[in-house]
Write a protein that binds this DNA or RNA. Sequence first.
DNA 1: AAGTGGTCTAGACCACGGG
DNA 2: CCGTGGTCTAGACCACTTG
Lengths: 254, 254
Amino acid sequence: MAKLEWSQLSIDKGKPLPRYYQISKALEKFIEKNRIPSETRLPSEEYLSKIFGVSRPTINKAIQLLMEKSLVRKERGKGTFVIEKKVVPFVFMQDLTSLGESLKKSGLSFTTKVIESKEIRAGSTIAREMTLKPRDLVVYLKRLRCIEGEPVFVTETYLPSKKFPGLLKQDFASRTLYSILEEEYGIPVVKAKRILRVGRPSTEDATLLKIPLSQPLIELEGIAYSGDGSVVAYSKSKFRGDRVVLSSTVFKTQ
Amino acid sequence: MAKLEWSQLSIDKGKPLPRYYQISKALEKFIEKNRIPSETRLPSEEYLSKIFGVSRPTINKAIQLLMEKSLVRKERGKGTFVIEKKVVPFVFMQDLTSLGESLKKSGLSFTTKVIESKEIRAGSTIAREMTLKPRDLVVYLKRLRCIEGEPVFVTETYLPSKKFPGLLKQDFASRTLYSILEEEYGIPVVKAKRILRVGRPSTEDATLLKIPLSQPLIELEGIAYSGDGSVVAYSKSKFRGDRVVLSSTVFKTQ
DNA sequence: AAGTGGTCTAGACCACGGG
DNA sequence: CCGTGGTCTAGACCACTTG
């Protein structure tokens, strides 16, 4: 009977709006109004193309828009499914904590997976950010963080090897980076600069985060400093824009 | 002679990557490597389709990707043009300043255009955010901010009418909102909550900001409080993701 | 084997901008 | 008028999932 419902959908081909846009809106409204449960499968693109009286590429593009809004998820060979809208509230600027610590406090279950860890030369770009020389060694760390079992962000971190001998032997999956730095090396982070922008995933990050290439990310770049003003870590985190909200509270300083 | 350069481009149709993706990357690299100046017109889609040996819709989709990355801008009837990459560094969390004040300090020339200003009833959503009753009156203000002449973000602000009688008569184009609140009403903002997310523009906002609907925005929602803990303003700002970087510095508090 | 989405083609018509 | 991008069609082949 499900098909009967969808079959009522239609668009006005006379309107000056693109058909794919009208179809996208029609589907969106239909899903909202009828409160289509998440994980419901949409009719096939073939079927929809008949309903709306357009070609399949047009339907494909319409659904593409819904996917970019994270309303649906496509699975090759299976179909298109309504997504449950989840957002993880996320505190990060309030106090000077690493993202891992911030997550811990929130009480949500989260896991860390180390994608890669190695020692490399800084190179000109990283060296400039960290006020090192390009040939200096740094520890490179790439971690994937999942919340409630779902991938939410990846972080790439660079730390000066000189300051943290043996760092690669630490267990980054079960302890937060900041706590390792403070407890194992006695170097606490006392200041951090952060830069935030919108970005797009690389093919690798899209795979890790299980998102399409078209979905925007929130990029958070950070430089952490120790008490003597030297750089302790340079990091770049990429968050799924559909799963994360960053929040903070600011008070008058004077 | 420009055509000669572009004509060298090609892709490997045997690769397992979509053609539109390969073409997009090829064009991107070509623009970067040859430092194609901004405002240069790309070859027509027709021409490119011949060069790459694919159909025009495929070229169209490839260029679509570049547009979403804000590398090019399409103009109907004219062509596709390379965009100058401009980013406005933007301090926002450091201290408790309004966005207007933050801009002023940055030294960049900026203008404010009032799109709309009126008194309305709060409604349930706004009332909840501002701890008002749905039927309470609020002043609604929608402003477009331009930096160096280009639209960069829109802000919608709601303020409780009761606290600020005659507010609509103020000149919001030449003074910042916070300074009006403090100097005209003696109510300074001492605390603010901020929530940040990625969003997509409404058709109206896309027009105001001169961006395609596909381009993501940074949304900054804020609630400002006065000394007695009451809500002074609720605002929602939407920034062009390709023009803005938000930055902050955090210190250890304890 | 059948059904799904991913992608592509060759051609088409339109609206817009500029000569 | 012509060249541009915006959009659409009808059909196709592929890779993947499921029965």
